[in-house]
């Protein structure tokens, strides 16, 4: 379960002065549900997910993840989440197996529990063939499978995906999307950021359209279509964003 209330993040930029990357953003995501953050580049999606992942501290507001406060118990929060983004890479000089083991150890898995869990993931994600190959020698698809294994090695109840298909080919993207659907089936709480409409339409149970750090609209895909009177999600998105900009003007 993720509950975020009025999350705000401001940065001081030499050229632009005080920048409000995320502004009073609230969201509520339940287990067995995929919550999408849909927005253009620079909308504040990554900053929001980084606050939820305790990589950045909110300037205002707060959130709880699996009952843990991100300000008070960041370490516990990190134990409860799996984080996967399109840009996160693997350690090139570790083997696929060592990579998964390393993150298992960081998540307090030891001895036989660790090796059993690593074996299980290697089998499930079909990593066996290249488990002893160095990560820098793997193909993009193989790397992505290792990344998935790395993110779920500690069986997190919450998964955060930050544009996980960015820069991937269609085949690898399909693997990721199937994995996200599997997370929902496994009753995990899933937050997923993207700017690709087809992914939102396929995966998300609820969607928040984020623009300039603000939630412009929230609802299911159908609700957003109905709100705007559009049948195509892309048009619905544009209408909501333009409406918000007009209101601000």
């Amino acid at each position: 379960m993720i509950i975020a209330e009025n999350l705000t993040k401001t940065f001081r930029d030499r050229k632009r002065g005080l920048v409000r990357a995320v502004n009073n953003l609230s969201l509520n995501c339940r287990p067995g549900q995929i919550f999408g953050l849909l927005g253009a580049n620079g909308a504040g999606k990554t900053t929001t997910l980084r606050m939820l992942g305790t990589l950045l501290e909110p300037t205002h507001g707060n959130a709880t993840i699996a009952g843990y406060d991100i300000r008070e118990n960041p370490q516990e929060v990190r134990r409860c989440i799996g984080f996967l983004s399109g840009s996160t890479a693997l350690y090139g000089r570790l083997t696929a197996r060592e990579m998964i083991e390393y993150f298992g150890q960081l998540n307090n898995l030891k001895g036989t529990d660790l090796s059993r869990r690593v074996d299980e993931l290697i089998e499930r994600l079909e990593i066996g063939e290249f488990q002893n190959g160095r990560c820098d020698k793997l193909s993009t698809g193989q790397k992505q499978r290792v990344s998935i294994a790395r993110s779920i090695v500690h069986r997190p109840p919450v998964m955060i995906f930050d544009e996980p298909t960015s820069g991937l080919d269609v085949m690898t993207s399909q693997t990721i999307m199937a994995f996200i659907e599997q997370c929902r089936s496994d009753n995990l709480t899933v937050v997923f950021s993207t700017h690709i409409m087809s992914e939102v339409e396929r995966l998300c149970d609820r969607v928040a359209i984020v623009h300039h750090g603000i939630v412009a609209a929230e609802g299911s895909v159908n609700e957003l279509r109905q709100q705007t009177g559009e049948t195509v999600m892309e048009n619905a998105f544009l209408k909501i964003v333009h409406r918000m900009e007009d209101t601000n003007v």
């Binding site: 990589l55 989440i81 983004s85 840009s87 890479a89």
Partner: peptide, 14 residues
């Protein structure tokens, strides 16, 4: 540079 830092920072290690 290789974007592995984020992966590490989101682990339980402080």
């Amino acid at each position: 540079e290789r974007s592995t830092m984020e992966t590490l920072l989101v682990s339980p290690a402080s």
